Amino acid sequence: MATRIERIIKYMNDAFKRDAGLWSHSVMDVLENIHSIWEIVNHLIFGKEYLINILEGKEIPSEDDFKTPDDTSEEAWKNTVKKLEEVHNKLIEILKGKTDEDLDKSLGEYGTLEDNLYGIISHDCYHAGQIVLILQLMGLNL
């Protein structure tokens, strides 16, 4: 039987990784060849980095998390998507070192680690759905 932390990691990856959508399309599924949702991607990066900073005891960034890119080249887009994958993978690696007991630890005003991880899962699913809606409104299908 999987531990609680292993189940959470599975759900996080299901909501995020290509071809593994938790309910429908994953975050990475909806990002392939899409550029109009760049600000949402920056927001997803910010959310994961925010939790990583809490877990690592680092200062919490206060910048605008829905950043509009200055460089809108294909290479810059690919780098942004790559950064999102890297941040996700970093969070997963941190979690692999945690136990079920760690899930109950308070992160202060942010709730428990478990609360925050389910928040990240929901956040990824919500924004994946948002991106799908934007694509549909643009007449694009996945």
Results as ranks from 00 to 15, higher is better:
I92V: 14
N79F: 11
I121Y: 06
E93W: 09
K83S: 03
W77N: 13
G108W: 12
D14P: 03
E74H: 11
Q136V: 15
D70S: 12
M28I: 14
I5F: 01
I121S: 00
A20I: 05
H25L: 15
G129H: 06
G57W: 03
L103I: 09
M28C: 14
D115M: 14
S73W: 05
W77Q: 04
A2E: 04
E49S: 08
E85L: 08
E59Q: 14
T80E: 05
L91K: 01
K17G: 07
L140R: 07
L142T: 00
L107T: 05
Q136S: 13
L91R: 05
E32A: 13
I37M: 10
M138S: 10
Y118V: 11
Y11R: 08
I8C: 01
A15W: 03
E63W: 09
L44H: 07
C125E: 09
T68Q: 07
G47R: 03
A128W: 04
K10S: 02
Y110L: 11
N42Y: 10
E86P: 03
D115V: 15
L133F: 10
P61E: 15
H43T: 13
I5N: 02
Q136Y: 13
I40Q: 02
Q130E: 06
Y110E: 07
N116F: 07
I40A: 06
I52T: 11
Q136T: 15
I134M: 06
I40C: 09
Y126L: 14
N33P: 10
I60H: 08
D19E: 11
S62W: 03
I34L: 12
E114S: 07
A2Q: 10
K83L: 05
L142Q: 05
E59I: 12
E74L: 12
E32T: 11
I60V: 11
L133M: 10
E56R: 08
R18T: 11
E74N: 09
T72S: 14
C125Y: 09
V30Q: 02
D124L: 03
I8L: 06
F66I: 11
D19N: 13
V132R: 00
L55M: 04
I40Y: 06
T112K: 02
G97P: 09
Y110V: 05
G139K: 08
S26V: 09
N141Y: 12
R4K: 07
H123Q: 13
V41R: 04
